[in-house]
Design a protein around this nucleic acid. Structure first.
Lengths: 233, 233
DNA sequence: CTAAATTTGTGCTTTATAACATTGTTGTCA
DNA sequence: TGACAACAATGTTATAAAGCACAAATTTAG
């Protein structure tokens, strides 16, 4: 895959979805106070337990947000695509970071210092409300995930994960291959199972003609069936 | 237990933790527009899927917030004590309710109409920010729960649940009995296990002198040990 | 380009926990 | 007081999924 030139990366103004509610002064304030950071594949962006210093916006690339559990087994909480915010929850709650964030692939991140972010939150109601909406949505997703992961059986959990990837990242030109190539391990960490079981279950789905595989490329063949598997548990 | 007189229930002004950030006008607005509702033990306050109409504040009693999963097996998401808000997440996210709320015991709830709540959120930045903080805190708790429930073994999950009850509701005068009497079923729904297993595991804890039981009264004897069990998985 | 490391794939074994069945206990109310 | 219902306790069985060991394939690095 060819590397993107820096010039291809969208400017903060285009990528920051809440830009439109900022006043001209605030816009200038942000313009004068943001930084850009580049991360290599598998590079850590921040760690669980660290004190948050910046709110971040993914400009380019793909990153995973995950928690380390028992015996350093990790659970992927969410995966981001360009334009999404992260690292700000801990700033608002005035806590240490509760998650790790790692770049899946080479990624570019815009960062805004915590105090600047907080100052805008406290002065611009529309800005504050946007993040309120974002957290309210994320909270429902988190609660839904809890039930998904604890109550569904292995096939249901994997089917659910595939559908989420499909929804979030979309498909290639062929209209079926999910535009996100994950290792079996990441797929397992997303659906709370061991790598062996992710492999086994994927193989079963292929046998049942629900999906097709070519290495890490996963093609959804029978979406309806996948939905049924996800629902039935 | 003797029923409380209505007069013993704290007025909205005292119970609404964000009252202090309201302007005099807003206070009057709320005073003119709230209602009080009484619920009997095991009565439903609202259901998953319903369109939210009010933000609510628990004035008195205890309620559980839970989700129905596969085969109507339920997962308790959180339990509230007087002074806590609920039912407002869906209003903010402009979604249907994602949880059920039921009274554990006779409870009193103050309700504020959704449009009034929203109008204050949109005009009073400090008010908005308070809820932003609340959601940010809840989100971390939800993600932590996901990992707890999926990765820990049955003993660890139950130990965790007991510690949470202990922390949230405190203890009786004896300094050890948790001030919250749950059925074995609710305890199971809190820690993602079957009722049988909750019973069995509680019995084991008693044998190991970690807790003592007298019906629904649970006494924590060895908190350190319980913490260790919760951590080890 | 080759060696090393990582990732993927499979079969077998073990284990944790759900499901089921049965019995005991307590409290309620006619 | 006895009958019924709800809850608690416990033993047995079935099964989903983890753990493990190892081979094959693919990627990365020297």
């Amino acid at each position: 895959m060819a590397k993107k030139h820096v010039s291809e990366i969208k400017p903060l103004e285009e990528i920051l979805s809440v830009w439109d509610v900022l006043t001209p002064d605030e816009r200038q304030f942000v313009r004068n106070n943001y930084t850009v950071h580049y991360y290599k594949k598998n590079e850590m962006i921040h760690c669980e337990g660290e004190v948050p210093t910046h709110m971040m916006i993914l400009a380019d690339g793909k990153v995973k947000v995950y928690k380390e559990g028992v015996g350093s087994r990790s659970q992927i909480i969410r995966m981001l695509k360009p334009g999404e915010h992260f690292g700000y929850r801990a700033i608002i709650a005035n806590e240490a970071n509760n998650t790790n964030v790692m770049a899946f692939e080479a990624s570019t991140v815009y960062m805004i210092k915590a105090d600047i972010f907080l100052s805008i939150l406290r002065h611009n109601n529309a800005f504050c409300y946007r993040f309120l909406e974002e957290l309210a949505t994320d909270l429902a997703a988190s609660d839904a995930r809890t039930v998904n992961l604890t109550q569904k059986h292995i096939r249901g959990r994997l089917a659910e994960a595939l559908l989420q990837l499909f929804k979030k990242y979309g498909v290639e030109e062929d209209g079926a291959t999910i535009s996100m190539y994950l290792s079996r391990e990441d797929l397992a960490n997303l659906s709370n199972m061991t790598t062996s079981n992710a492999i086994r279950t994927l193989a079963n789905f292929v046998n049942e003609h629900v999906i097709a595989m070519d290495g890490r490329k996963l093609k959804i063949i029978d979406e309806e069936r996948l939905r049924k598997i996800s629902k039935m548990g």
